[in-house]
Simulated assay, not measured.
Amino acid sequence: MQKQELSYEDTKFTLDTYWLDPISDFDEPLDHPLAIICPGGAFKFHTDRESQPIAMKFNAEGIHALVLRYQLIDDEHTVYPLALQELATTLNWLKAQSKSHQIDLSKILLVGFSAGGHVVADFNSIMLNPDERKKIFPEELEVQPAANILGYSVIDMTLGWPREEEWTMKVSSDIYYWQAQEHLTKDGKPTFMWQTVTDGTVPVMNSIIYAQKMDFLGIPYELHLFGSGDHGLSLATYVTQNPNNEANLNVYDAKWWELCVNWLKLQKILPKL
């Protein structure tokens, strides 16, 4: 893993990069899809449980991965709109990296968990609408995502998370950014979603309302709701288990990864075997 520092205007942010090395005995160079991962952490921090382990799972499927250390709440900034501007900057930066790192720019994935999922959902809803994007990001979006993956994501910040409106105001004082589903248009990209119905942190209705809006707009989606399991499962295996926390393990919910890989094949991001 290597750190890459980028900036939007006068604000710097960091990417953790997990590049696949070229295979030297191939006759021709092979371009790979790429996943940009936005980990959760309640906009307070970026959890490592949804960072390197997820990136390396993508690598194992032949997909480059970046972990975006997007804007968090601090004394100087709210999360929005800066997190969206950082994600747009990252996408545009990929264009200059496509040759040296063999990136297939037509197969870029945005991946979000929990609070990071809100960043991805807001991007899908707001930033892919050219008229709305120009209000906060006047540059052209030179590289567009092909699809999204959302895990137990916050979609609507009025549905139970955050529990205090004071924290919601710290995320953004502009209610425009609170409800990702309200701004979704037909410009949105296909999306894979998964969550547990027993999620005690982010109400499952978040995933349901985003799927409903996608269904209404005719945007392809796949939604998996598992019958048990806590919030923040990540891979739901021992790889991302916090020591001595059995709630991080769920053999049934861990199937989300296999289902997601199958969906990526259906979307022609990965080849069908």
Rank of each mutant, 00 (worst) to 15 (best):
M1K: 14
M1R: 12
Q4P: 00
S7D: 05
S7H: 14
L15N: 13
W19K: 12
W19N: 14
D21S: 15
P22K: 11
I23D: 15
P29F: 02
P33T: 02
P33K: 07
L34K: 02
L34W: 08
L34V: 09
A35W: 00
I37W: 04
P39Q: 08
A42P: 01
F43K: 05
K44E: 15
A55E: 02
M56N: 05
K57R: 11
F58M: 04
F58D: 00
A60H: 06
G62T: 07
V67W: 06
L68W: 03
Y70T: 10
Y70M: 05
L72Y: 08
D74E: 02
T78C: 11
P81W: 01
L82K: 09
Q85V: 03
A88W: 00
T90K: 02
L91F: 10
N92P: 06
W93I: 00
I103N: 00
L105T: 06
L105E: 05
S106M: 02
I108A: 08
L109S: 01
V111A: 00
S114P: 12
A115Y: 02
A121V: 07
D122N: 15
N124Y: 03
I126F: 13
I126L: 14
M127Y: 11
L128G: 09
D131H: 10
K134I: 14
I136M: 13
E140F: 07
L141A: 07
V143G: 00
A147C: 13
L150G: 07
G151E: 11
I155P: 08
I155N: 04
D156W: 10
T158C: 04
G160K: 02
W161R: 06
E164S: 13
W167V: 12
M169L: 14
S173W: 01
Y176R: 09
W178G: 07
A180M: 11
Q181W: 10
E182A: 14
H183A: 02
T185V: 10
K189W: 01
T191Y: 00
M193W: 03
V197P: 01
V197G: 03
T198C: 06
T201P: 05
V202D: 02
V202G: 03
V202E: 00
M205R: 01
L217A: 04
L217I: 10
L223T: 09
F226V: 09
F226P: 01
D230Y: 02
L233P: 00
T237W: 08
T237F: 08
V239K: 14
T240L: 12
Q241Y: 11
N242L: 14
N242T: 14
N244A: 12
N244W: 12
L249N: 06
A254Q: 13
C260H: 04
V261F: 04
L264G: 07
K268L: 05
P271N: 07
L273D: 15
